[in-house]
């Protein structure tokens, strides 16, 4: 296990020794932080603490930063790996992203009822069905955020092992 942790550290050290990769990481982190902060500001974790910066709660800032940083690491590792012909873990990053943003984006917007209405559902169906779809997402949103973080960590681990063990890594 310690050897694997060493793979992670070694992979990250090699990847971020290149200034280009560090710059990509910074840009993606900034963009993803804005998106996560926007979406999570309407989530249940926003209720965990008071407003801190620009109306965002401390909990939202911390969670948004962590998820955006982890997501950016995965993206940079994927880009690095692709250029060296190494199969990275992009699918996990997609799953993680969806687990993080879907609950918040679908929970408290009119997206679900609007889609139901567009599909031809009657008002009574919209009123009776919206909660069945959005309610569980709202209720289990914190768990989904934890899942998102876990998926990202797994993606980083798997990508690190592949990159470190690849003969292409210098």
């Amino acid at each position: 296990m310690y050897a694997r942790l060493g793979d992670i550290a070694n992979s990250l050290r090699i990847i971020f020794s290149e200034k280009r990769n560090a710059a990509i990481f910074a840009v993606i982190t900034a963009l993803m932080f804005m998106l996560y902060a926007y979406l999570l500001s309407y989530s249940s974790i926003a209720l965990l603490s008071g407003s801190a910066l620009f109306g965002l709660s401390v909990a939202v800032i911390i969670v948004s930063f962590l998820l955006s940083a982890l997501f950016s690491v995965v993206i940079v590792m994927n880009i690095y790996g692709i250029k060296r012909g190494v199969n990275a873990s992009a699918k996990l990053s997609i799953g993680s992203f969806l687990a993080a943003v879907l609950p918040s984006s679908m929970c408290c917007t009119a997206l679900v009822p609007s889609l139901l209405a567009l599909s031809g559902a009657s008002i009574s169906t919209v009123i009776g069905t919206t909660g069945i779809i959005q309610g569980p997402m709202a209720t289990y949103e914190p768990l989904l955020l934890l899942l998102s973080g876990a998926l990202l960590l797994v993606a980083i681990y798997k990508s690190s092992v592949k990159l470190c063990c690849s003969r292409n890594v210098k």
């Binding site: 309407y42 994927n78 880009i79 692709i82 699918k91 997609i94 992203f97 969806l98 917007t109 009119a110």
Partner: peptide, 27 residues
């Protein structure tokens, strides 16, 4: 290059969700 598509898919999903939210709105 095929693997790079996953990254583009992620970014497209990201943009689509954001746009849908703006269209359907919160308020």
């Amino acid at each position: 290059m095929k693997k790079l598509h996953y990254i583009w898919i992620t970014l497209v999903i990201l943009a689509a969700i954001f746009i849908l939210i703006q269209i359907f709105g919160r308020s």
